[in-house]
């Protein structure tokens, strides 16, 4: 196990002093956008669709897909609640691959499939009980399309991983202001736009980069 210091360094943002929320009252944020982001920060929905077991598995999966080891529990960017809300309300995406079942079924089967594969590869243990490396191995098998398990005979694992799991987990992470901070994203911009749109051009309210890696 690596030290906390190492983990913090691994995810040290090039924009350590940038906080997009500092602009909350600036002309970059209009009322309707403030309302949307306020809800995202303050009204994280309860788990209503997933079973406890499914939610635990998904939380562990999300932590491997977009790890946040440097953030304490409770400070992490929430992923599971938003996916749960999407499924609870059954908000669709506008398309579904013909080989995949409707999204609710796909998620339930997929999470059960991940646990099943974990069990078959690691002596009956659940995904959440595996160490990080073993968890990654399970997910890599799912991504590659050759995971052991009965469930994957009905649900194409690669398609589930690529088109549903991976995409939605990472999109959920990067819709959060904390994620905007670490990548130096300007965030909302209405009604004020930008003046310096050229290379290296930075308006005074944009993120200043401090330590660029490599």
């Amino acid at each position: 196990m690596r030290s906390t210091q190492e983990q913090n360094d691994e995810f040290r943002s090039p924009y350590p002093r940038y906080n997009v929320l500092d602009k909350w009252l600036s002309p970059d944020w209009d009322d309707q956008t403030r309302e949307v982001v306020r809800r995202r920060l303050e009204k994280v929905p309860p788990i209503r669709f997933f079973s406890e077991k499914e939610a635990q598995t998904l939380a562990a999966v999300a932590e491997r897909i977009i790890p946040q080891p440097e953030r304490k529990e409770g400070e992490k960017i929430p992923i599971v609640p938003w996916i749960d809300e999407k499924l609870y309300e059954d908000t669709r995406d506008g398309y579904r691959y013909e080989k995949l079942p409707p999204q609710r079924q796909a998620w339930q089967q997929g999470l059960a499939g991940i646990d099943e594969t974990a069990g078959m590869l690691f002596k009956g243990r659940r995904f959440v009980d595996l160490d990080a490396e073993s968890q990654d191995e399970v997910l890599k098998r799912v991504q590659k399309g050759d995971p052991p398990g009965e469930i994957w005979k009905q649900l194409p694992s690669r398609s589930f991983f690529e088109h549903i799991l991976l995409k939605i987990v990472v999109k959920t992470y990067y819709m959060h202001p904390l994620a905007w901070n670490e990548i130096g994203y300007n965030g909302p911009s209405s009604p004020r736009g930008h003046v310096r749109i050229w290379e290296n051009g930075l308006d005074p309210w944009e993120a200043q980069e401090e330590a660029r890696r490599r």
Partner: peptide, 22 residues
């Protein structure tokens, strides 16, 4: 989403690569 799909990237590598978004 493009980076994850286009490069099959996830995990710590993805998060670090996103630091270069700008």
């Amino acid at each position: 989403a493009k980076m994850a799909a286009g490069r099959g990237l996830w995990g710590a590598e993805l998060r670090r690569e996103m630091f270069d978004y700008n």
